[in-house]
Design a protein around this nucleic acid. Structure first.
Lengths: 132, 132
DNA sequence: ATGCTTGCAAACAGTTTGCATCTAA
DNA sequence: TTAGATGCAAACTGTTTGCAAGCAT
């Protein structure tokens, strides 16, 4: 059975902060937003709650260079990260579950999932590059 | 034109260390191997050279949780990482360049590439789990 | 009351960097 | 000779953790 969880004010603030953003904030961004609502919430608490909410499936996390990003969408989808400014966007690329089986057969690993991260330059950074 | 590079003993040692391993070592592993050959080589130099060799396309790097891994193979291929012990293996999953174009059209990002990382439990960790 | 949670600060891991010195070309 | 490369140590970023106090249940 799952561990007993309490509904703390801090946990609610963290969840609200993730939901309140349509970009893909990193832990530090969430911490900043939560701090704005209540300066007494500590960074450790934000990290702990982000991990908890992930385990509960309330939010998902994208492992990106420069720090994990959080996303309120929990369905399978991929992301693009801008190599210039670090911004992240969703893509509708379908999740191919067949690949997991193929890799499992090939390597002997018990494959549970895979993540695909696209790299590129976002529209606004492209515009900047044009001007430069 | 490319920057002028020198052939230093340290650089050769780093490259040799990456090539001398068939697993996917992280920077620290390389540092350890290089240190065994010459204890005076510093960690900073190892990191600098790993980055340089990457830029030159001599080696490639896999961004994995817990630290980047280096690979002597430079052709497009994907990896599986063991969620239990952190070991990494190659897979022969083909690189689908069409996806890059699709994401580019959808998001407006100038997509240069993508990386796919599978997660699972490696054969030896599976065996351990059986026994437990 | 109980024990999950918190705040704080210190610890951590992985990596980068400033700077004086060294060295390949 | 001279600009790239090194060694060292300190700085940095992102994240985790030990512990005493706090609060949801």
């Amino acid at each position: 059975m799952a561990v007993q969880r309490r509904n703390t004010r801090q946990r609610a603030l963290v969840l609200e902060a993730v939901r309140g953003r349509c970009d893909h904030p990193r832990a530090e961004d969430i911490y900043r937003d939560v701090s704005a609502a209540d300066p007494r919430v500590s960074r450790g608490t934000v990290y702990r709650n982000l991990r908890l909410l992930q385990e509960q499936g309330e939010i998902m996390c994208i492992k990106a260079p420069g720090g994990d990003r959080f996303d309120l969408r929990c369905d399978a989808h991929c992301h693009v990260i801008c190599t210039a400014c670090g911004s992240v966007a969703d893509t509708s690329t379908p999740y191919d579950a067949l690949m997991d089986g193929a890799v499992e057969d090939e390597t002997g690993f018990a494959v549970s999932c895979h993540t695909t991260l696209f790299e590129g330059v976002c529209p606004s950074c492209r515009a900047l590059a044009q001007g430069a």
